[in-house]
Simulated assay, not measured.
Amino acid sequence: MRRIYEPESLLEAEMLLSMLASEGIDAYLSGRHLVGGVGELPALGLLALLVEDRQAEQARALIGAYNAALVLPAEEPDSYPGSLLC
């Protein structure tokens, strides 16, 4: 297995795991259980995404596209500013 990315948070890690799984890439999150020890452990570098060597380049490309994505401009209705439409 190859370490391909260090997520900033557990939330980002879980989202990336789901994204990779949807593309058929099996990924493993290292350090998931260490997050609760922040304060006694260094705050950075605890989490890491690992994938099989043969899928590493594809996974890096997908994560690169995720990091390069831009936020879409908000399209709020005038009558309800600040609310989300679902």
Rank of each mutant, 00 (worst) to 15 (best):
M1V: 04
R2S: 14
R3D: 13
R3E: 14
E8C: 09
E8W: 06
L10H: 04
E12K: 09
A13Y: 01
L17S: 06
M19Q: 08
M19G: 02
A21M: 00
A21D: 03
E23W: 07
G24C: 11
D26W: 09
A27T: 03
A27I: 02
Y28N: 04
G31V: 06
R32I: 08
H33C: 13
H33Q: 13
L34R: 02
V35S: 02
G36D: 10
V38M: 14
E40K: 12
L41P: 12
L44F: 01
L44E: 13
L47G: 13
L49I: 10
L50T: 03
E52A: 12
Q55Y: 05
Q55T: 09
E57H: 08
E57F: 05
Q58G: 04
A59S: 08
A59H: 02
A61I: 00
A61Q: 01
L62K: 06
A65K: 08
Y66P: 00
Y66G: 00
Y66I: 00
A68G: 05
A68D: 11
L72I: 07
P73H: 01
P73F: 00
A74Y: 02
A74T: 13
E75R: 07
E76C: 07
E76Q: 11
D78S: 15
S79K: 05
Y80D: 15
S83G: 11
L84I: 12
C86W: 13
C86S: 11
